[in-house]
Each structure stands twice: as C-alpha cells, then as structure tokens.
C-alpha cells in the first residue's frame, strides 16, 4: 500500500548521474522510476538512456554492453542498438526482427548533471532545464558533492522549502525565516530571509530556492558569502529516492578561506538534512493539512504540485488508501 495519495513517479526532469560518472564509451546500469535502465556515452560524447533489457533474450545492457559509435551492443548475443533504440545489426542473422526496439528516454546534460525526463504516459518534455551562470564559471568552485538514499517521496522533501516553521524546531535556526513563495508554471520560487549561524557568527542571509518540478532545484544563499546548492531528487522504487547535493561557492580572494567557508556550509547543510531524514522516513501525509499562521504557504505549494502528476482516474485522485497505478510507459 502506498504511503502517499499521489503517484510515486511524478512527471519532470530527474537527475540520474553526474556528468563525470560516464566517460566517452562508458556504460552504466541505473535503476529509477521502478525500472532498470542503461546509460551510455557515445563516441561523439552524447549521453543516451535506454530501458535496460534487450528485447531478444533479456540481457541487461548495463552489465557488459559495449559502445560503438552512437550505438550500444548487447553483451549476450551482440545485437546492436542505436540511440533511437532501434536494432541496427544482428551479427549472425540476415533479417532484423521488426520489433527489435528498446524504449529510449529524453536526456538533458546540463550544469554537470545528467537528467532524464519521466512522464507517466511517455509524453515528451514540456519544459527544459537551462544552464546556470555558476557552472563552469572561474569565479565559482566546482561542486562539493554529497548523496543520500532516503525513504520518502519527492513531494514530501520539496515541501520543506515552504515549511518555514520547521527550520527553527528541526534545525535550530536562530529564528523562523520569513518566506514568500511564487508559482510560475513548473517553477516554484521561494525567497526567505533567515538568520544563520556561520563560522563568522550570526548573519542575516537571503535564501532563494527555485524548484523546477520535483526533481531539480537551485538554492542560492547570499550573506557573507554567495553559495549555490544544486539538488537532484530522483525516485528509485516504491520506497526510496536518491538525493544528490552539489555545492559551489563564489571564490573569495583567499583560496583557503573559500574552502573553509565551503566546508562549513556543506557541513551545515548535511547537519540539517540529517535532522530532516528521520522525520521524512516516518511521517505520514496529511491532507488537507491542519496549518496555522506562521506555517508558510503549504497550500499554495500543494496546488503547484498537482501539475506533475498524471492521475489514472481523475475521480479518485485524493483517496488516501488508493495507490495510484503507474501508467504503462512502453
């Protein structure tokens, strides 16, 4: 039985790896959205993601598959599939079976992340992810990375951005931040003013978070230093999500100071996430929530969330005990 009264796998862009995890000719198995996938980088440098299993006799292309040009060759009987998933060669056969095709996924490699588009009905991307100014910018450090595997749902994690009251009670921030949220199509922008503890004492900082659907968000902190948190949250199966944080700092004049500040900030983010995890892993989803003044725009957030779901039966979307079946996406 599902813990949540909405589909497990929302529509949108989701990070499946960092760019440096797959070199040219590299092949890697993935498991996301309850499916086995294979990711590879062609000799031209493009990342492709396909369903993992060969339609011939079911081998997983991510274990022993070989890249050739812009194709991948199955490790089992050497069938070769192109970037569109079409079988282009069966080395020992005269005729390629008509149905020798593997499902492909839309891939977007941007900001050092490899993202795929998930849609419950297999519809193509309805929005994109842009390059952000901090990436490959000599004034900014490269990412300091951390990752977690957490038993929760994307929507639950993302709700934290608007849940202003928890910052004080869960994270011990000096006082509750004041937040303003605006939803514009698939982008939710939350701006908060908060007092934060830093190695240089308490400071008032501005935190701007931009959520592009449920899978990808940018959080910019400005105060003593400017920092950027690039976060990817990707559902793995019915229970767990993969969380990846990449953290960059605008370089200070002094290189040692930059790394000290960066390390302290990352440690603070890790500390806060560590405090969120037991809440997320054990909470239930209350709908409608019993909220009061000071809670933040949770109602606005939850309305924004609805656009990322394909409901199988619109008459029964909110029945809490009804798991939403994931649409067949073959």
């Amino acid at each position: 039985m599902s813990r949540f009264p909405f589909p497990r796998y929302p529509n949108g862009w989701f990070q499946v790896a960092y760019s440096d995890e797959v070199a040219i000719g590299g092949v890697k198995p993935l498991k996301y959205f309850g499916k086995d996938l294979v990711m590879f980088r062609t000799e031209a440098g493009k990342v492709e993601v396909l369903d993992a299993h060969c339609p011939h006799l079911g081998a997983h292309l991510g274990y022993g598959g070989k890249v050739e040009g812009d194709c991948i060759r199955c490790p089992f009987h050497s069938w070769k599939f192109d970037a569109e998933g079409m079988c282009v060669e069966v080395p020992y056969a005269k005729k390629i079976p008509d149905r020798a095709k593997i499902r492909t996924w839309h891939v977007n490699e941007v900001n050092g992340l490899i993202m795929v588009w998930h849609h419950a009905k297999g519809e193509p991307p309805s929005w994109g992810i842009q390059k952000n100014i901090e990436f490959e910018n000599p004034e900014w450090t490269t990412y300091e990375k951390r990752s977690w595997r957490i038993r929760t749902h994307n929507q639950e994690m993302a709700e934290n951005a608007v849940d202003t009251a928890h910052f004080h009670y869960v994270h011990g921030t000096v006082e509750q931040p004041t937040s303003k949220a605006e939803a514009d199509k698939h982008v939710l922008r939350v701006v908060s003013q908060t007092k934060m503890r830093t190695p240089m004492g308490k400071t008032t900082g501005t935190v701007e978070s931009l959520s592009y659907g449920f899978g990808y968000s940018l959080t910019r902190f400005t105060g003593i230093v400017e920092t950027l948190l690039v976060a990817g949250v990707t559902p793995i199966d019915d229970e767990y999500v993969d969380v990846r944080f990449g953290f960059a700092v605008r370089k200070l004049m002094n290189g040692d100071a930059t790394s000290t500040v960066g390390a302290a900030f990352m440690a603070e983010i890790e500390r806060q996430l560590g405090q969120d995890i037991p809440i997320w892993e054990n909470k239930i989803y209350v709908t409608p929530p019993l909220i009061c003044d000071g809670d933040g725009p949770i109602g606005l957030y939850r309305r924004w969330c609805k656009q990322f779901y394909t409901m199988e039966n619109q008459a029964l979307p909110m029945a809490p005990t009804q798991p939403q079946p994931e649409a067949a996406t073959a």
Binding site: A181, P288, I291, G296, P297, I298, G299, L300, R303
Partner: peptide
Amino acid sequence: LCEANGYCVK
C-alpha cells in the same frame, strides 16, 4: 497576509 493557501476557496 494572504498566502494563497486556498482554504477559503474550498
């Protein structure tokens, strides 16, 4: 004060 939580609309 309004934060667009939508309780009134419901």
